[in-house]
Nucleic acid binder design. Sequence first.
DNA 1: CGCCTCCTGCAACCTTTGGTTGCGCATGAG
DNA 2: CTCATGCGCAACCAAAGGTTGCAGGAGGCG
Lengths: 116, 116
Amino acid sequence: MSAPAAEDVDDDLWSAIGDPTRRRMLDLLLVEGDGTATSLAQRLPVTRQAVAKHLGVLDRAGLVRGTPAGREKRYRVDDAQLARAVAQLSSVGAAWDARLRRIKRIAEAIQRTQQD
Amino acid sequence: MSAPAAEDVDDDLWSAIGDPTRRRMLDLLLVEGDGTATSLAQRLPVTRQAVAKHLGVLDRAGLVRGTPAGREKRYRVDDAQLARAVAQLSSVGAAWDARLRRIKRIAEAIQRTQQD
DNA sequence: CGCCTCCTGCAACCTTTGGTTGCGCATGAG
DNA sequence: CTCATGCGCAACCAAAGGTTGCAGGAGGCG
């Protein structure tokens, strides 16, 4: 018990997916299979350079991998690492959910004792 | 299908729980029931002022509520709003998970056709 | 009451990070 | 060969997380 998920979190991974722009980039890469800084920037409200920086962050976090292809550099999601990230999300969510439920149970118990 | 969960996300809520210090604060508040800026700062690696700022952010996001009690101000978690945040976490996680599974299915299908 | 202590709030400042513009360079297309 | 397209690097800006320092209000106690 007492898996304090929020303390086990890989902060690099979490902060990588914590940014809204990076989340949308991951979404796009998942949907389209792959993409370049330029192609992603076209469907995002930021410049190509901003996207490139984010790709660097995601790359260092291991969430994407880029391979040079001629004059462009195509990035694609690393499935395993994204799966790890998803696991951390649900881990934190489950921990909080469990604590909320516990609090609710206690509150109900108190109500019961007061009604006696 | 194609529910692009990452776009439905309430960015204020998400960015509130995106910060590691704020996540640990929520954890502490959940475990201990309530707390003040000073009491939280004692078990966190940051100063009281930093904690106070974070409490401000969490308050504006609706995740905590603070009530003055004499010379101190006690904060406690808003269960409903945290439940909403948990829902968003699992929503994004589920969306990515679904896409990962879909990719895996497609990959397997391709393998099968190639084996034929 | 008067003093002292503790907790809070406000302000100035530093550093990191997400974002921009501008430029130079390489590589594929005509 | 020439041109344009895509990339990387550098300078710069604003917002956010964090720190120190200081002034003020509520409680405890002689």
